[in-house]
Amino acid sequence: MPMTHFHEDDSIFNLLADDSSDPQQPMIVESSDSCPDTLVDSSDDFPDTVVQSSEHGSDEDKDSLAIGRLNGHFWFPRAEPQLPPITAHSLCELWKDQPTMCEEEVFPEEESYFDSQCTANDNPGLPDSRALPTLHFTDARDMTFWKSVWSVVEQYTEWCEISACLLDLGPHWEQNCDVVTSAIQSIVSTRNEFKIGITAGFLIIASGSVLAVSTPGGSSQ
């Protein structure tokens, strides 16, 4: 099944500029009908084939957040664009009348929009063996820019779980995850009924009950 069922003309991911000959302009891609065998790409694997969207390309589009899709991946522009006017208001305009579409078409009938062709190994951070498309930074020179994107996109997770896609999993990262998983497994395997909490922190000197991690959120004191 297709990775998603966004309307090609309506998704924010397809608000794309049409001048790909200019390397400073956002690249344009459209989604394919199937999920690739693997969602793990190296950083050099920016798609060679870029499909232009013939239905977009106005000056207004060029100023919009340009995110393309290819084989289930969401791609950000190859070159860092100028900071677009990404505000909650502007995204609301983009998504106007779209929530219904998400409910009815992204989640048609009893099907999930998660592609069953993908495996948990394709995106190990996701539960239930669900594999989501992976977002790729094609230029991470200015994290401030991207953070501004994330902060807005994250507001729309209840619609399409976009933020769940915000994983950039390269081979090295995947290997690191496996190593850490093995480490944790070795800990829990030493005792039955072991209770654990996984958290991150700056200070390694910490105190507190393990119950602290049972509060909502992954982080704890």
Binding site: P124, G125, L126, P127, D128, N176, C177, V180, T181, I184, V188, E193, F194, K195, I196, G197, I198, T199, A200, V210, L211, V213, S214, T215, P216, G217, G218, S219
Partner: peptide
């Protein structure tokens, strides 16, 4: 990494107390 590991262990290990 925290998100990755929590997702795994919440699913497969009942002793993982993380909620979020």
């Amino acid at each position: 990494m925290e998100r990755d590991q929590i997702a795994k262990f919440k699913l497969y290990y009942s002793g993982c107390l993380n909620v979020g």
